[in-house]
Design a protein around this nucleic acid. Sequence first.
RNA 1: CGGUGAUUAGCGCAGCCUGGUAGCGCACUUGGUUUGGGUCCAAGGGGUCGCAAGUUCGAAUCUUGCAUCACCGACCA
Length: 573
Amino acid sequence: MRTTQYLLSTLKETPSDAEVISHQLMLRAGMIRKLASGLYTWLPSGLKVLRKVEQIVREEMNKAGAIEVLMPVVQPADLWEESGRWEKFGPELLRIKDRHERPFLLGPTHEEVITELVRKEISSYKQLPVNLYQVQTKFRDEVRPRFGVMRAREFLMKDAYSFHLTEDCLEKTYQAMHQAYCNIFDRLGLEYRPVLADTGSIGGSTSHEFHVLADSGEDAIVFSDGSDYAANIEKAEALPPQGERPAATQNQEKIATPNTHSIAQVCERLKIDASQTVKTLLVVGANAEGEEQGVVALVVRGDHELNEVKAEKLENVFSPLTMANEAQIQQAVNCSAGSIGPVDLNIPVIVDHSAAHLADFVAGANEDGFHFTGLNWDRDISHYQVADIRNVVEGDPSPCGTGKLSIKRGIEVGHIFQLGTKYSEAMKAGVLTESGKHETLTMGCYGIGVSRIVAAAIEQNHDKFGIKWPAAIAPFQVCVLPMNMHKSHRIPDVANKLYTDLQQAGYEVLFDDRKERPGVMFADMELIGVPHVIVIGERNLDEGLVEYKNRQTGEKQTIKIEDVLSFIQQQMV
RNA sequence: CGGUGAUUAGCGCAGCCUGGUAGCGCACUUGGUUUGGGUCCAAGGGGUCGCAAGUUCGAAUCUUGCAUCACCGACCA
């Protein structure tokens, strides 16, 4: 491709609303342009990368025995009413009506559609198992789209759905998908980890997420240093502290702490560590039917954080987890949020293991401007339950029993679930077994965020000059940069020949034939991240040489013109 | 959905307080200059100042409403 015939669209300045590096570089390198909040146009270079990721995903899915289909983006509401998600899905689901006022939606996912397909097309156990996938545009009306295509409203996703008669069979396909995902991320050349994950609102039993490791990642991933245990922090269990709780040595004492609302302020005033305090959070409670009812107090150590996923799984806590509002707090404890404590509450109190292990601790007195010191469980606070409701922290013992936990950031790029019968039951998808009995299908589902991978790859592979594409997904493999081409005949002759030769050898070559200064060319090619750069200048031409520069390593060397093709071939291996 | 802020040329911004001919840098066009790391000089094109209403002789500027966008938080298969 000649740059003069191409839409290069690089930017010198960084657009002000791009926060993360991948978003900035994708805009600057001319890969994407924003159309509206969370909606992006893919420009030629961006699309080339997107298609490469897509193709690798497709090849590995096919290799793993999955079969490609393509389902509509627009889906009829009645299917979602059948599965119950028309009601359950929040405002993230974009609902639309057609000209006949019939309700439809833009698909954020395709469980309903695939289950509808399978219940019609598959009727015998002989047709099982089957694993169907598509690469399709999804739409989720995110409350707050951000970070470019990393969290866009419209995005490209590969989603696969498998159907089985037995759990064992599902397990096999699940393992095959796990392996396929590892193959995909290996081929993409990204540093990634599969981690244990929460199944979230989708339900089901086993689930793994695949994370690309990057400091800018939105998820916290925990690792054991003594085993290969890895989990999303949402899922990682905090083990109860070892040994007996220390004995009480202090008496309960109420002290005045005016204008002291946060744990940090309390610690400052009392000259104590946050780990000797507890914080008490009020959340909306739930009755036996899971409907909103009253408020519940959740108590964690002052230096710990509430784990919302764990909390909303508790029976008497409303899901999704909702913090009590000011009116509810006033009604329940008659003080403001900064002064709540577990003493003498007439609402359910759920205490984290670590908080329940404290002796002589500090907490709010349920009276504005006062705290208790010297508190002790059972002696001062009687009615409470103990549960795991906090996030693990660096150095906690690993739940697998070996090693200590460390925490890294990750970008979720894949998620695989064993769904079970949640959708097949609601939508009556089953087959006749060998014995002629009707049996409900067991499902798995497997997603990969294709467009998100592009951003994640940049987060992990860039420097101050621009993108450093992994070989497998670079938009071009080689670029040919003639220095001051218009001033001589020799240079365009050599450049044109190299361009043609490399192209004929099957490489995607970007030939910068613009009448630009060298600096502009270098800067643009580094920004776009072309891995192999050939520079043709008068300087080396007398000796029949051109310069080669490797984008990844930054190494430069001169090579003979007639060796360029074989040299590049060598570099690609 | 709450809090904050923004909206002026393709991009980044100034002007607004104190109403009076709409500006700067980059980009773009033309000519020259320079030529192995984002040259320099000159000339030029491009804006119903987010939308609507109001105040005023006169509104980018003051008032009100609306819209869009962003950041923080909540939210999130």
